[in-house]
Design a protein around this nucleic acid. Structure first.
Length: 248
DNA sequence: CAGAGTGTTGAATA
DNA sequence: ATATTCAACACTCT
């Protein structure tokens, strides 16, 4: 399910429980001593990229929905419960997700300046990280959570299309102006994506991802497995420029 | 009905 | 020891 904007929605849905005590915690999660969570007060909810961070006074629970993760609020799904909390006014249940405990201070764990949904996002920091990997493909760099947190395969394809950059372009070959535009578009697109999600108009706004025809050229879009590790890239050969000395 | 995929990790292998 | 590859996870949609 989850790219950055969808995690923001999850955070918003859970905000109602901030300040409340965990009356009951259950689930088959193995990394976390579930019994010890009882009576803990949820003090804050944060997100970092695709990760949800439930903050308690002395520790944080990190939840990543991965590829198949599900959650349910005031409802139970018919599958193995990984981690579930009952608060004073309701419950939340997580399934098929990765859960772990963080005891360090979050500022030591996460660099907020490269999270596309974070207020302290800093374009210059991301550009610096981009320049550390001139030999990588642009489609790989966009998915690297250490470089740009919160961007998933959908956002990746959309921002490359919108900025006219071919996914197989080499980082070091893309002009600085194009890179800056790309980074800016990651943020603006993610925010648009969030509002489309909230309005329920998300589907109409995909321009390349899982689409068939380029809306600019009316040419069939290409779908190729590109990168390391390989991921699906949707692109238009006609209007997305390949910046590369290699032949694709 | 088979197969791919909104993602990442940790184990296996070289 | 270090780098790379790969299965695993678990479910929906095409």
């Amino acid at each position: 399910m989850p790219e950055g904007p969808q995690i923001i929605i999850l955070k918003e849905q859970l905000e109602q429980y901030v300040g409340q005590e965990i009356l009951e915690a259950k689930g088959t999660v193995k990394n976390i001593p579930v019994q010890n969570l009882k009576n803990q007060i949820l003090t804050e909810i944060k997100t970092y990229g695709k990760v949800l961070l439930l903050c308690f006074p002395t520790f944080t629970i990190r939840i990543h929905l991965m590829l198949f993760g599900k959650y349910a609020i005031n409802q139970e799904l018919n599958r193995e419960l990984r981690l579930g909390f009952t608060f004073e006014t309701g419950e939340v249940n997580f399934y098929a997700c990765d859960c772990r405990l963080i005891s360090e201070h979050l500022n030591q764990v996460y660099d907020w300046s490269t999270d596309v949904m974070h207020p302290s996002f800093n374009q210059v920091k991301v550009l610096e990280k981009f320049y550390c990997h001139p030999e990588r493909l642009i489609c790989d760099a966009l998915l690297d959570q250490k470089i740009l947190a919160g961007v998933g395969n959908g956002i990746k394809n959309e921002v490359l299309f919108r900025t006219h950059i071919h996914p197989a372009s080499l980082m070091g070959q893309v002009p600085e102006a194009a890179l800056k535009n790309l980074i800016r578009t990651c943020v603006t697109f993610s925010k648009e994506y969030l509002s489309w999600k909230q309005e329920g108009t998300e589907k109409e706004n995909w321009q390349v991802y899982q689409q068939r025809v380029c809306l600019r050229d009316q040419v069939p879009l290409r779908k190729e497995k590109i990168g390391k590790p390989v991921r699906s890239c949707y692109f238009c050969e006609k209007c997305q420029v390949l910046y590369s000395s290699c032949v694709f």
